[in-house]
Design a protein around this nucleic acid. Structure first.
Lengths: 133, 133
DNA sequence: TTTATTAATGCGACATTATTGCAATAATAA
DNA sequence: TTATTATTGCAATAATGTCGCATTAATAAA
């Protein structure tokens, strides 16, 4: 199916790229300057995923987050990497850290979903040494 | 809050232990011989998690799966490990493979949720060499 | 520039997962 | 045997994500 350029797609992709993080549909809906329907956001995001522009992460909260593929070089086919979810500022970021593992005989991996949760550097330092902003 | 032994708890824990896998509330409800309400299953499972008897995994389908902590020795405080979700037989198992990673300065990890998806050895061999059962 | 094609969108409805309040039940202590 | 209160079932609810359908609009064709 041929793609068309629309304000919606541009806005979503721009937002994802600028934020540099993985965002939920809700975060996108809030952060974006034009009103976009929830169903549309999902359709756009899934299309991006299908086209390889964006990748999806499912966190332990069971929600889907979407991030551009990737600040890094970009030509390599996107090595699986860890994601970090800060439970304080509720954002998810892609880590440089690649995911390494070995599997028992006969197993075939199709996708990798690895999320570490806790406090990012900002929030952990806030908690220990600073006041909240 | 003090715990009480009930047929429900016994049945759920026994099922999880016997299966050796991570099960969803739905799988538990189906597999168990006595009828148990969905809400009750979740409450029991979350209680087990809280008590450290069971751990929770969230797969890329966004669903929660629960597994006993663990066939292995059991005295060590349960090292984070990979989980494998077979998309064919739709089961999740704990892998021996531990999760290793390093984090940027200042980050603090509270929980680890790593799920690999694909075909387990049984299903991948069925696909390539055998008929379906 | 105008028209035709069909991808994209908004809306409402829906399926699913998970949680919560409340009254009834039952496990344990007294 | 009785009292206490953890546990359970039920119904209601919140939230996430998907789908069908009619309308709109991006792009190609005339």
């Amino acid at each position: 199916m041929k793609r068309r350029n629309t304000p919606t797609k541009e806005a979503v992709l721009k937002l994802l790229a600028q934020s540099g993080k993985a965002l939920s549909h809700e975060a996108i809906e809030k952060a974006i300057d034009i009103p976009i329907n929830r169903a549309t956001i999902y359709r756009v995001l899934n299309q991006f995923c299908h086209d390889g522009t964006v990748h999806k992460i499912v966190a332990e909260d069971g929600k889907q987050y979407f991030a551009v593929c990737m600040k890094c070089e970009g030509d390599a086919p996107q090595e699986p990497h860890f994601h970090f979810r800060c439970t304080s500022c509720d954002s998810i970021e892609c880590l440089k850290e690649p995911v390494h593992f070995s599997l028992p005989e006969g197993y075939e991996v199709a996708s990798v979903n690895c999320v570490l949760s806790g406090l990012c550097s900002k929030c952990s330092s806030h908690n220990s040494t600073c006041e909240n902003e």
